[in-house]
Amino acid sequence: MSEPVRFVSQKVDLDYKVVTSPVARRFDEQMRAGRITGHKCPECGLVYVPPKGFCPIDCVITDESNEVEVRDAGTLTSFTVITPIQYQGQEEKEEYVLANILLDGASGTIGQQRVEGIPHSEVRMGMRVKAVWGGDPNEGSRGWGLTGAIKHWEPSGEPDEPKEKYQEHVL
């Protein structure tokens, strides 16, 4: 006796064109040249990395004239070690670290950044990290995130920052 059929798999295939906005495109060009840029809001002075093309707080449009460069190093403010859930299309198989990082010169963190070159059990809040460039810039550039130009982040060896420096930058 065979089991009764309870599920029939119906896979729907829809194609979407990924369009990067002019702001994201400019950011990507800068990343390919090894520069991490943001937009500084002319009203509140906050520096958004990656740039959005506007300040969501003041609702002011920003453009290249508001562009500032930030350092490719910063402070890890919080993190998680992910055990990847397996689903159709998932390529991640091994555990990995995802961290929020406050770059030097930026007002807010960049989220979900890979940190490598350190045992997972030694990753900690307040740890200083630096970018490891040389990734494939065509990977992961969907108009958000930091594009693939940075492979991942690794400890910079500088002393850890105290709690006051990172605890207001969980996100």
Partner: peptide, 15 residues
């Protein structure tokens, strides 16, 4: 064929 995001499209109309 708009290249901006939906948010960027909305900014001017809300304004």
């Amino acid at each position: 064929g708009v290249e901006e995001t939906e948010t960027q499209l909305l900014f001017p109309v809300i304004n």
